[in-house]
């Protein structure tokens, strides 16, 4: 075990310990802890955890997507509009369709980044406007709905916490793990880590970038559909999209993904979403103004990036 490995491991261990401490603290604040409370926890983090995972994939691949929140809002609006009042099978079909559209939107974003040569930040800033605009166009007012059966399948019938837990873990199992093991997965890490070495190893850099953004888009689409399932509605607001984007970056970074690219995984960001969820709730229950949680989230993100950057400097990677 050497320095870098030790740092990576200690980061993961650190985040697990942090989740456990905060989790116990939060549970202790509650009069009782049962499946109802567990369901509340999971529903509270599910959309943002999925979004953080999507952002993590993109950052690992050497990019960043400031429009990922907008992608989720768009899919949220699309699904809530067209799934309202539909039958179970139609809703399920539409759910898959919209998740696929999320992937497609991501792929187009990746294509624009590759073809234009513009910085990821500028492209995705522009697409974030565009996508929120489309979302507002699809659904000018908050509203919409979803087939109740599908909603129960996503959010679980109170107090059943298993379905949302499955939706948290399933994407990891059926999307991320096979991808991570595949050559495409390695190629994603490779283009984030060192584009030249990736090219010499036979990676098609542009095509891989498109795939990276597409996978990020799939997670964003999933997040949007899940949000519809939980809230039974959609809200087309730019503020929701920008807050979600910020949280997704915070979650990815806190979850051990290096902004320099090529480092990290998806379990960390999922855990980080729990941390970001527990902090305001614990504060609220302790009688502290929950606004402090904003301060802590922001400061935590800065601190994590700062320390990560300094550690990387010391271990010689620039």
């Amino acid at each position: 075990m050497n320095l870098v490995q030790a740092r990576r491991q200690s980061w993961n261990i650190g985040i697990v310990v942090l989740v456990l401490i905060l989790g116990f603290w939060r549970i202790n604040q509650l009069p009782q802890f049962g499946s109802y409370e567990a369901r509340t926890f999971i529903l509270g983090i599910l959309p943002i955890a999925l979004l953080s995972m999507g952002q993590a994939v993109i950052i690992i691949g050497g990019g960043i997507n400031l429009a990922i929140g907008a992608e989720a809002v768009l899919i949220n609006c699309l699904s809530a509009k067209y799934m309202a009042g539909t039958s179970f099978t139609t809703s399920v079909f539409l759910a898959f369709l919209f998740i696929g559209i999320g992937g497609l939107v991501g792929a187009i974003t990746g294509w624009i980044v590759s073809a234009s040569g513009i910085a990821d930040i500028v492209v995705t800033l522009a697409t974030s406007f565009l996508l929120v605009g489309v979302a507002m166009f699809v659904m000018p007012q908050p509203g919409g709905g979803i087939n109740q059966g599908v909603a129960d399948l996503i959010g679980g019938k109170d107090p059943n916490f298993i379905p949302p837990l499955i939706w948290l873990i399933l994407p990891l199992l059926i999307i991320w793990i096979p991808l991570y093991r595949s050559r495409t997965g390695i190629a994603m890490y490779a283009i984030g880590s060192n584009k030249d070495a990736a090219f010499l190893s036979g990676v098609n850099v542009n095509r891989t970038r498109i795939k990276v953004y597409a996978v990020g888009g799939l997670f964003a689409g999933l997040s949007g559909v899940v949000l519809t399932g939980i809230t039974l509605s959609a809200s087309p607001f730019a503020t929701i999209s920008s807050t979600a984007t910020l949280n997704s970056v915070a979650g990815a970074v806190l979850g051990g993904v290096s902004l320099a690219g090529g480092v990290g995984g998806l379990a960390g960001p999922a855990m980080a979403a729990l941390v970001l969820y527990f902090i305001p709730n614990i504060m609220l229950a302790s009688g502290i103004d929950p606004a402090y949680s904003q301060i802590i989230t922001g400061a935590l993100t800065i601190f994590v990036v700062l320390v990560g950057g300094l550690l990387r400097k010391r271990t010689g990677k620039t």
Binding site: D289, Y292, G309
Partner: peptide
Amino acid sequence: FGMNPLIMTLGMNAVLIGVFTVGVT
């Protein structure tokens, strides 16, 4: 400290929102 400006100022944005939300009261 070589912070990424994007993350630094996004984080600062969150901190300031929190500070003023608390500050109002």
